[in-house]
């Protein structure tokens, strides 16, 4: 089932305090690509993947969008359903969503429009070998 809109967490709200893996505290709107990269480096067990948006469709669930990504070096195909206001962090660009207007309305978080070809930051478990 998709992530429900009513449960979109408040950590996307402008001003929310985020703790990096280094212990540093930053506001969500001030985060930069390097913050995620460094956090992944110092945290055990997690790694950052580059996830490229390859398609954006309407979901069968009303009010949701279906996002298709290719993830990591393996180019694995992963699809997720989210509300259009759900922000993703795009490399070198920052927060982006399918509906920047709704994101601004709900979270006051400035966003770019998420587009096919954007490379988002995602995490996965680090391989044990």
């Amino acid at each position: 089932p998709p992530i429900t809109s009513s449960h979109l967490p408040s950590h996307f709200m402008k001003g929310a305090i985020i703790q990096l893996a280094t212990g540093e505290l930053k506001r969500v709107e001030d985060l930069q690509t390097q913050d995620f990269v460094r956090s992944a480096e110092v945290s055990g067990g997690l790694k950052i993947d580059s996830s490229t948006v390859v398609d954006i469709q309407e979901s069968q669930w009303p009010g949701f969008v279906l996002l298709h990504f290719v993830v990591g070096e393996q180019q694995s195909k992963v699809s997720i359903e989210v509300p259009p206001e759900h922000p993703f962090f795009v490399y070198g660009q920052g927060w982006s969503s399918c509906s920047p207007g709704r994101t601004a309305q709900l979270f006051s978080l400035p966003c770019h429009r998420l587009q096919v070809g954007d490379v988002c930051i995602s995490i996965s478990l680090q391989s044990l070998n």
Partner: peptide, 25 residues
Amino acid sequence: NVEPRSVAVFPWHSLVPFLAPSQPD
């Protein structure tokens, strides 16, 4: 009286999606 307000602190990894293939190759 001013009651102390707690400030929520969220971990960085809660902001990014966990994307992993359900069936590894």
